[in-house]
Design a protein around this nucleic acid. Structure first.
Lengths: 175, 175
DNA sequence: AATGACTGAATGAACGTTCAATCACAATAC
DNA sequence: GTATTGTGATTGAACGTTCATTCAGTCATT
């Protein structure tokens, strides 16, 4: 609902109806609407981590693992467009404050560790793993968004958004 | 104000006060709040285009022009953090509908033409220029956002976000 | 009989929007 | 030069609606 209507466009009463409970019930589990939204964000982070980490296979070359990571993250978002829409909005909203960013976050931790290992194995350049995970996650995020918004335009222009995963690999792989 | 409080967090009355006019006056220039927000979006696009295009010098190599483009866009956003905050939020919100995306947009046109020329000159790979401009603009956007949010963390971890411009250049330059 | 979750009408604050009244200024008349 | 009228922008209190939140009462389970 948030992905479709935005944070303001979906009242608590609507959320409650959709969940099949009364509006008041939400307030036994969440302090207020903001607390609910932050709760969703934390839940979503866990789900993403679960999906991507379960499908990672560290016996493969890091190049293959990178492409799997990219594909799995993309698949997850395309499988659950509403999660993607929510997450994409949240990250760019005032909710995503510095305070928020400094909270423990197992999805971020996983992503950082993932790229750290690529460096340790000597398969990618010695860059800050936080930078790398931000780079990759940002690009997957926005490609999924573009695919969603530009459906017709994409077909018309025969755009190859998957190219971007190659571009980025070309940029980060060890020489 | 939108960058700080979000779309809902800033009532029309607040906008009016900040602008030094009465609330009603806004409605002689804009149909409603949505119309105002879309108006700001269009204005912002013009401003970005102006800043970046004025500083482009097509006598340089495309590599230099690419790095200028990157720098100028980054500078513009950092010079006007509130514009960046607004734009970043708008792009990821339900306001940025498919209908919105299909409206004429001189900033998008400029960016597309820019990368088209890089291809024509044979200095970058033969990719869809729309893909290229989305790639570059998305990454500049998110780097600026990260710099804004992560100030302390960045310093602590000695992160080199500027690396990303090189990574992307390595990815898109002609072999 | 006791516990704790659930309900949904009620509350009051906040918001977008309207509009009758006012104001600033220019054009016209004397 | 002064008074009068006309025009269009500006004002902000008021309106009606929507929304987050509360809480007294109900229900389900132990």
């Amino acid at each position: 609902m948030i992905q479709e209507h935005g944070f303001h466009g979906c009242p608590v009463s609507m959320v409650a109806k959709n969940a099949g409970v009364a509006a008041g019930t939400i307030y036994t589990y969440f302090e207020n609407k903001d607390d609910l939204i932050i709760g969703i964000y934390e839940y979503v982070g866990e789900e993403i981590k679960k999906y991507v980490s379960e499908r990672d296979d560290n016996s493969l070359s890091f190049k293959d693992r990178y492409y799997n990571y990219w594909k799995n993250l993309t698949d997850f978002y395309e499988l659950k467009p509403s999660i993607h829409g929510f997450y994409d909005q949240f990250l760019n909203s005032p909710y995503n404050s510095e305070e928020m960013q400094n909270k423990p976050n197992s999805w971020h931790d996983f992503a950082n560790a993932f790229f750290e290992e690529g460096i340790r194995r000597g398969e990618i350049k010695e860059l800050n793993p936080i930078v790398l995970s931000i780079l990759v996650n940002t690009n997957v995020n926005s490609i999924v968004r573009i695919k969603k918004n530009f459906k017709k335009k994409l077909a018309r222009n025969n755009m190859e958004l998957d190219e971007i995963s190659h571009l980025i690999w070309a940029g980060i792989k060890a020489d």
